[in-house]
Amino acid sequence: MKLMIRKNNNGALMAYVPKKDLEVAITESEKPELWGGVVTLANGWRLELPEMPGDTRLPITIEARRLEG
């Protein structure tokens, strides 16, 4: 699924899913650099993000995979 990741005014990471018109905070990240791991959104969704360099600039639109469970 397409996913846009950005930082809000407070510096918190936010995820926007255009197809669902849904914007929620990223509450947990499996890896400190975010990329190539699994993140958890405030609504409970778990998404696998692609591998990217740690210094990737935000905002960015990526292809993420939603994990079940």
Rank of each mutant, 00 (worst) to 15 (best):
V39Y: 00
L58A: 11
L41S: 14
E33A: 11
L34I: 10
L41A: 07
E68L: 12
E63L: 09
E33D: 13
E33Y: 15
K19R: 14
D55Q: 12
E30Y: 00
V17D: 06
M14D: 11
R46A: 12
V39M: 03
G11P: 12
A15W: 14
L67D: 06
G11D: 11
Y16S: 09
G69V: 10
E51V: 05
W35G: 03
S29V: 05
E33V: 13
M14Y: 03
E48K: 13
L22M: 14
E63F: 05
S29K: 05
S29E: 06
A15K: 09
L34R: 02
P18E: 07
P50L: 00
A12H: 11
L41K: 08
L47E: 08
K19Y: 13
L47G: 10
Y16W: 08
P18F: 02
A42G: 15
P18L: 05
I62Q: 09
E23G: 07
K7N: 05
G69W: 10
T56R: 03
N9E: 08
V38M: 00
E48P: 01
L67I: 11
G11Y: 10
E63G: 08
A64R: 05
E30V: 04
W45D: 15
A25V: 12
T27N: 07
M1W: 01
R65K: 13
V17C: 08
R65N: 12
M1P: 04
K20M: 06
A64L: 07
N9F: 08
P53D: 01
P50D: 02
L47H: 11
W45E: 09
